[in-house]
């Protein structure tokens, strides 16, 4: 499968997965909460495509896309959200707290940035060559520990990629009401090489990240990638107070639908169908499975 097909397969899979989740929540078949990345999938797919088996990822509350793009573990994630024993964290973590191999996520804003810096330090001491990527949003920039962590990463020249997915909102609060100054000026103030991209095109994300990963792997110094993107779905489930006209206008730049047009219709249809089939089978299998037991942790 060529890269375009691979990227589209992942984009379409993440979108279908999360659309399924929102339906399940709305029908009361899933309980608790979730944060989907609908509209932001290009970052997940374009960035994780640069990662190798040794690399480390720290992600946040909006982590499904990052997790699926990296691990392809649909069954483990869905089972986790359904509270099943087969869940990647056996039903204890849920939507926001996932761990598999080098992937870690946490529902607390900002704290993971410090953990990522420490992980990068460990990998550096082991000479593993691993790059540690940490995903944060514009809303996370309100947390002080982000700056402590950036300072340390720059000071100690640690191989961390800070990815700021700037979707214009801190939950319901528009950026203009919660953030002074420029986003990119923040990492740059610490001397961190920073690249900005205003595109929802996965190929553009992938291309923009190429020099960042190359640089990280050659000199080991931290880099920052600021992605100006947009969340087409709600922050959580039904909690959207944005102007519907604003969201509608952004649909023209839907990263999944736009990318689909790069493929011949029959190829795209085949990929969609395969993803759908896969999801349906996993859902059917998990619906028969028992809820998580209580032997953990």
């Amino acid at each position: 499968m060529d890269r375009t097909e691979t990227f589209y397969r992942k984009l379409s899979l993440i979108r279908r997965f999360e659309t399924h989740l929102l339906e399940q929540f709305s029908w009361g078949k899933l309980s608790g909460t979730t944060h989907t990345c609908i509209g932001q999938e290009a970052n997940a797919v374009g960035l994780t495509a640069h990662m190798t088996g040794d690399d480390v990822v720290f992600s946040n509350h909006r982590c499904h896309g990052h997790y699926l793009a990296l691990t392809d573990d649909v069954a483990g994630l869905l089972a986790e959200l359904m509270g099943r024993e087969q869940g990647v964290c056996h039903g204890w973590g849920g939507s926001q707290h996932l761990h598999r191999d080098g992937f870690y996520s946490n529902g607390i804003q900002g704290g993971i940035v410090a953990n990522a810096v420490g992980a990068a330090l460990a990998e550096k001491t082991k000479n593993s060559g691993a790059v540690t990527t940490v995903f944060l949003g514009d809303g996370t920039l309100g947390e002080g520990i982000v700056y402590e962590a950036m300072n340390l990463a720059a000071l100690w020249a640690l191989p961390v990629l800070f990815v700021i997915e700037h979707n214009g909102y801190a939950q319901s609060t528009p950026t203009a009401m919660q953030l002074a100054g420029e986003v990119a000026a923040r990492p740059r103030a610490f001397g961190i090489e920073t690249h900005c991209l205003a595109s929802n095109d996965t190929d553009a994300v992938y291309a923009a990240a190429t020099p960042l990963f190359d640089g990280l792997r050659s000199d080991g110094k931290p880099r920052c990638f600021v992605s100006f993107t947009y969340r087409l779905g709600p922050h959580s489930k039904g909690d959207d107070t944005r102007d519907p006209a604003e969201i509608e206008a952004k649909r023209a730049d839907d990263p999944v639908l736009s990318y689909r047009r790069k493929l011949p219709e029959d190829v795209a249809t085949r990929i969609d169908a395969a993803n759908q089939q896969r999801l349906v089978e996993i859902v059917a299998r998990l619906e028969q499975s028992a809820p998580a037991g209580s032997q953990h942790p």
């Binding site: 940035v113 410090a114 420490g118 330090l121 460990a122």
Partner: peptide, 9 residues
């Protein structure tokens, strides 16, 4: 926080 990341790795 950094020590936690170090310990995880």
């Amino acid at each position: 926080g950094a020590a936690t990341g170090m310990a995880l790795r």
